[in-house]
Design a protein around this nucleic acid. Structure first.
Lengths: 329, 329
DNA sequence: ACCGCGTATGGAATCGATTCCACATAGGTA
DNA sequence: TACCTATGTGGAATCGATTCCATACGCGGT
């Protein structure tokens, strides 16, 4: 590795002067500047960001903690983040907890040890130790997707969007609506979306029959199984089913199709997330589109605000959503 | 930020001793060790990786350059990379060129300035300046998806897989097979897959009629347009169409369905990539599954081999693929 | 003649770790 | 007794940049 010292020697100036040329700061004669630039050019010298940031305390790197790499949500989120960060010259240091909760704290520390300028956490399940770890961190921080008190949050309106969708189904004439959810420990997807459904039904005085509410996991197969449960064990067969993710909805559709029933004539289906699949599956799935890229951009902006001197206090940015009506209803 | 100096003072030892405790190296009395660990515990001290790597020349960070974030391919590749890297304690520094070729060189330099231990490039179009930049880099390096002479490569067998698929179609009885490709500047997807098709047809003495070969881009709409071109301008209407990506194939399917024709009875369709969509679209799409996660793992291994002392020379690891037969044929 | 100021440059401290080397002590062996 | 070795510790150089401060020169104003 060629260093600033070598450049200085070759250009017959001091390291100070080389530094000034690189950073375009202070006084440097055209004469000296030209010599330095020439040597840099010739040698292909690239300054060490490490040495630099050791002094300046800035790395232009933002740490991102994802619960799962390789999901459409993560990938859209990262896209939004990158749009803003790239423009400002920041890079993303990626970590992936693979849904192991202890890793979140581990990675927080690791990112701190790497002196990232800020951290963005896309969380699933929050707990007290995690909150505590974040508070001690003292680094610009933003959480996406789950509410954490006292911190900058970028949230989706899980409750309202879910409610919107159920209201929409009711307006379309469906009254017997079954539900496929996930574990309520996931406050956003599990708890809030379920409550949106429950409240929408209640507010419309619609009963929820035995067997209509099922709990699955985040994959297509689980949607299939849940739908089977609904069909096998419901006292009244529902005329519609609302699943809290598109994948669950698609699994449900598979089961419905297999039993020879028609969507939406026999049973209507709705999902959430506006995944690519939802567009191309047939019939195309009615769903809620959360603007995930926008959430990424917003999170990036919030973290940069803090990096540039803003202090960190509770902020809640709720990202818009929209209902996409398609032929599954 | 609390530093090693402070720990040393509080524990009444020298920085040297603290360092020895942290790294479990050299001689330290149990007595001193205990004191140091206690202070570290109390203060929540996290050593600076920056300062460390300034001396040790190792960062445990691998730079990854992607042509597009937020595609299924990128995301599966990164997943594979992360599986191996996480196990070895490496993190991923992500950069995204958004298909701007100049950025590839820019990011190579940037990653070098950040002292990544290695670089993985998922390239689309290679050119001479890029090759030159990589050669000068002198950092462990692996390229995925496109062949680059003299470097460690992880490749998919684009030519053979494409040929396999066309042979399969022919064996199924389809003789009039149209083709939707992409720009041949993309050697893998554009050039090699096209040649696989052309050679398969030639080897079976099957003529390719005027209008059967179309060139699109990487999105669904383009597949739709290309299919329209085929139907409108072919002298003989084909009985099957082979698209070099699933998205193109799905676009083609949309057009075919719109014209009221049936898949596969009137026209059979095949794609490549084994995207999620291909599974759930109906009819389900016959396609080629490249083991992209495995490519990621292999690339990670290759780069780690170099990091751990292996020298960099031309290596070609061809990742397996398999044909997935589904109902679109 | 002196002061002040803009311009130009370099010496040396600094950031937070690692690591080489010198040194001290205690116990075992020839 | 003299010497060697294992154990334990710290001083100081080092990594590659930035930045504070001192210095020097030339020129205009008083």
């Amino acid at each position: 590795m060629i260093t600033i010292k070598e450049i200085a020697e070759r250009a017959n100036v001091s390291r100070t002067t080389v530094s000034r040329v690189i950073n375009n700061s202070g006084y440097v004669s055209d004469e000296a500047k030209k010599r330095v630039l020439k040597v840099i050019e010739e040698t292909g010298y690239i300054p060490s960001e490490h040495a630099k940031s050791l002094r300046t305390k800035k790395t232009k790197v933002i740490g991102v903690i994802l619960p799962k790499i390789s999901t459409e949500t993560s990938s859209r989120l990262v896209k939004g983040l990158d749009e803003v960060f790239a423009k400002e010259g920041y890079q993303i240091l990626l970590t992936n907890t693979n849904l192991e909760l202890e890793k979140e704290i581990e990675y927080l520390k690791l990112l701190k040890s790497r002196h990232v300028d800020g951290i963005i956490l896309s969380a699933t399940i929050i707990n007290e130790p995690l909150l505590e770890a974040i508070r001690q961190l003292n680094i610009p921080f933003v959480i996406v997707g789950q509410y954490m008190p006292g911190l900058p949050n970028v949230l989706f309106d899980d409750y309202q969007s879910s409610k919107d969708l159920v209201y929409f189904m009711i307006k379309k004439g469906y009254k017997h609506i079954a539900f496929i959810g996930v574990d309520e420990k996931d406050r956003s997807v599990g708890y809030l979306r379920k409550n949106g459904y429950l409240d929408a039904m209640k507010e419309n005085n619609l009963p929820i029959e035995k067997g209509w509410v099922q709990k699955g996991t985040f994959d297509v197969d689980s949607g299939y199984q849940c739908m089977k449960q609904i069909m096998d064990f419901s006292e009244k067969t529902p005329v519609a089913v609302f699943a809290v993710t598109d994948r669950l909805a698609i699994g449900a559709m598979q089961y419905i199709k297999e039993t020879g029933l028609s969507i939406p004539d026999d049973i209507a289906v709705a999902g959430m997330g506006a995944s690519e699949l939802s567009r191309f599956i047939s019939p195309a799935l009615t769903t809620i589109d959360f603007f995930i890229e926008e959430a990424g951009r917003e999170a990036a902006r919030l973290v940069l605000e803090q990096v540039n001197g803003g202090i960190s206090h509770e902020v809640i940015r709720t990202i818009k959503h929209r209902l996409i009506e398609r032929s599954s209803i």
